[in-house]
């Protein structure tokens, strides 16, 4: 047991509280789809949160409404953060209503992101479904910046319909790149869509990689992640090199409130990015 528990220095009013947000200014708001908005925010004062690693998340705070865990889809050295928010609840709808000049609270970044260090020298298979793309975008930025660190890079991005695709302009520019291949697929489309139709796993047979030296990064709805992880493991990717970004009810984000537990993990602290090796026994059980 612990010998003595010392008082926490951060408990003094001046030093802040681990659950207290910092004020940020909304600099830009972009509408991605009917229910999805991208916020670009910057610190209001000299105090800002530390630079997030790809795959980490922050708690975004709508004043007087509450907090929601939101992945970081980009950040800059000046403290600017970019978040893509889907309007699905009380807090996210308040976040979606923000306009430039408004204030939003931020605390974080939290959790463990994509294991890019371990992925060096390997092929990367990146599979995003729907709102799974924002937390993976920093991985692509890292790849573009340090392209020689990785082997083949294959990206599959799936959405419900063509209208639900986010970062549309950027997707076009990624498709023109020769240093990675991106396949975009939707679950259903009208006749004006000349791209692929089918769930993301239907694109996997086309993807080329050396399974024994590949890291797979998967983010999207849980069913999609489970099926995709199974599919890439079946193609020879090691389960411990297959990573998924879990989503649970993160409230405190620092493993103190208990809400986000998934089996033995606190998704907020031990995840959100977790290996399929660790998750597999629990993903198969309903309502863990």
């Amino acid at each position: 047991m612990l010998a003595d528990v010392a008082p926490d220095p951060t408990s003094s009013a001046a030093a802040g509280h681990p659950l207290a947000p910092l004020p940020y200014r909304v600099r830009a708001v972009a509408t991605e789809t009917a229910d999805t908005t991208t916020l670009t925010i910057e610190p209001r004062s000299t105090r800002s949160v530390p630079a997030p690693a790809p795959g980490q998340f922050v708690m975004l705070y709508a004043f007087g409404v509450g907090e929601s865990p939101i992945g970081v889809s980009a950040h800059r050295a000046d403290g600017t953060l970019v978040h893509t928010v889907r309007n699905v609840g009380k807090v996210t709808s308040a976040l979606a209503r923000l306009t430039p000049g408004d204030t939003v609270g931020v605390r974080g970044p939290y959790g463990r992101g994509w294991p890019l260090q371990e992925a060096r020298g390997q092929d990367l298979v990146i599979v995003a479904g729907g709102l799974g793309l924002p937390p993976l975008r920093p991985v692509l930025y890292e790849v573009f910046e340090n392209r020689d660190r990785y082997g083949r890079v294959e990206v599959i991005y799936g959405a419900r319909t063509p209208k639900d695709l986010i970062y549309y302009e950027e997707l076009q520019s990624w498709r023109r790149r020769s240093d990675l291949r991106i396949q975009v697929t939707v679950d259903a489309a009208g006749r004006d869509w000349y791209g692929d139709v089918g769930v993301v796993t239907t694109r996997l047979p086309d993807v080329r990689f050396d399974g024994s030296r590949t890291s797979a990064f998967i983010c999207g709805p849980e069913i999609m992640m489970r099926l995709t992880a199974q599919a890439v493991v079946a193609r020879g990717v090691r389960p411990e090199a297959t990573w998924v970004s879990m989503e649970r009810n993160m409230k405190c984000a620092v493993a103190l409130c208990g809400h986000c537990q998934f089996g033995p993990t606190f998704v907020c602290r031990d995840g959100p990015v977790l290996s399929y090796r660790a998750l597999e026994p629990f993903l198969a059980v309903k309502e863990v």
Partner: peptide, 10 residues
């Protein structure tokens, strides 16, 4: 795949 599509996971 059709079954997964039916789930309308997004």
């Amino acid at each position: 795949n059709t079954r997964i599509q039916l789930l309308d996971i997004h």
